[in-house]
Nucleic acid binder design. Structure first.
Length: 270
DNA sequence: CCGACAACCTGACGGC
DNA sequence: TGCCGTCAGGTTGTCG
C-alpha cells in the first residue's frame, strides 16, 4: 500500500476536486473490496457537500456537511483516478460532483476498504481507536516510543510495522528509517538505548517528510491522483536494492521477516 | 506475548 | 509467444 506518504499525497490530490463540492452521484460498482461496502453508502453520501478531506495513518477520511464520513484504505494497490477518460475493470467506486468532476477508486487487488460512519464516531471506530501516534506529530517522540516498546523482545522492525506502536509506516519506510538511523531491523526493540531511539524518531520523520515532498513512491500500482508519479524511489537507500551499495559503502542485504522482505545494511546498521 | 504463516486478489516480471 | 513460479506498498486471523 500506499504507506503514509502516499495516502497524504492522495488526500492532497483529492482536495482540489472534492473539497467544498456537492456530491451529485456515488456509484459502487461492486459490493465489496476487502470486505463489504456499507449498504447505505450511496444514500449517505449523495447530495452531501464535502467539508474536509483528511488523513489518519493510512486511512483517508472524507467528511460531509451531513455529519457523515467516508473512510477509505488503499490496501496494497489502491489509488484514486481523477477525471478518468473511461472507467476500467478495477474502478470500484465512482464519485461525481455537481461541478462535473469525477474521481474513481481503483484497486486491482481489492485489499483496500471503504467504510462510512458518523463523523463524531470516527475516532472511536476500533480500527482508528487502536492506532498509535501520528509519526509526524509531536506526540511521537523518543519517550513515547521507549514507553511503547518497553519490555518488548520483538525486533524493532516488527514494532515499527505495528500500527498500534506508530501509525502509518509500512515495509518501505520502516526499512529506510532503520537504515538512516543505523539500527539493525532485528535488534530487540525493548533494549535499544534512548539515544538510538531518538535517532530513530528523527529518521522516521525525515524519511516521511522527504517522501511526502517528493509526492510519495511509485511502485507497481501507486500513482498520485493527478497522474503524476511519486519521485521518492530514486532516493531509496536500501529498499529494493539488494546487492547494491548502501550510502555508507556497505552492501545492501535482503532477508525475510514475517513473510516480508527486509532490506538493510549489515555494515552500518547495528 | 511472540512470530510464523495463510488468506484475501490481480498484475508484472523473469526464466524456460 | 506462452506458461509457470515468484513477488509486490497491508491487514487480519489462526496456530504453536
Amino acid at each position: 500500500m500506499p504507506e503514509l506518504p502516499e495516502v497524504e499525497t492522495t488526500v492532497r490530490g483529492l482536495r482540489p476536486v472534492l473539497d467544498g463540492q456537492r456530491i451529485a452521484a456515488l456509484e459502487a460498482r461492486r459490493p465489496d473490496l476487502r470486505r463489504a461496502l456499507p449498504a447505505d453508502l450511496r444514500q449517505r453520501m449523495t447530495g452531501s457537500r464535502v467539508t474536509a478531506i483528511r488523513r489518519r495513518a493510512k486511512y483517508g477520511l472524507i467528511d460531509t456537511d451531513r455529519g457523515d464520513t467516508m473512510i477509505f484504505h488503499l490496501g496494497m494497490s489502491g489509488h484514486w483516478r481523477i477525471d478518468p477518460a473511461e472507467l476500467g475493470a478495477h474502478d470500484h467506486l465512482v464519485i461525481d460532483t455537481e461541478a462535473g468532476r469525477r474521481v474513481a477508486l481503483n484497486d486491482a487487488r481489492r485489499f483496500g476498504s471503504v467504510d462510512a460512519m458518523r463523523t463524531d464516531d470516527v475516532e472511536a471506530w476500533p480500527a482508528i481507536a487502536a492506532l498509535g501516534p501520528e509519526p509526524l506529530e509531536p506526540a511521537f517522540d523518543a519517550g513515547a516510543l521507549a514507553a511503547a516498546v518497553a519490555g518488548r523482545r520483538a525486533p524493532i522492525k516488527a514494532m515499527l510495522m505495528d500500527q498500534r506502536i506508530v501509525a502509518g509506516l509500512g515495509n518501505i519506510y520502516v526499512c529506510e528509517a532503520l537504515n538512516l538511523a543505523r539500527i539493525s531491523p532485528v535488534r530487540v526493540a525493548g533494549r535499544i538505548s534512548d539515544v538510538r531511539l531518538e535517532r530513530l524518531v528523527a529518521a522516521v520523520r525525515s524519511v516521511l517528510e522527504r517522501a511526502i515532498a517528493a509526492g510519495g513512491s511509485t511502485l507497481r500500482d501507486f500513482k498520485a491522483p493527478d497522474g503524476t508519479l511519486g519521485l521518492f524511489p530514486k532516493d531509496y537507500r536500501v529498499y529494493g536494492r539488494e546487492g547494491q551499495s548502501c550510502p555508507c559503502g556497505g552492501t545492501v542485504k535482503r532477508r525475510v521477516d514475517a513473510g516480508r522482505s527486509t532490506f538493510y545494511c549489515g555494515r552500518c546498521q547495528r
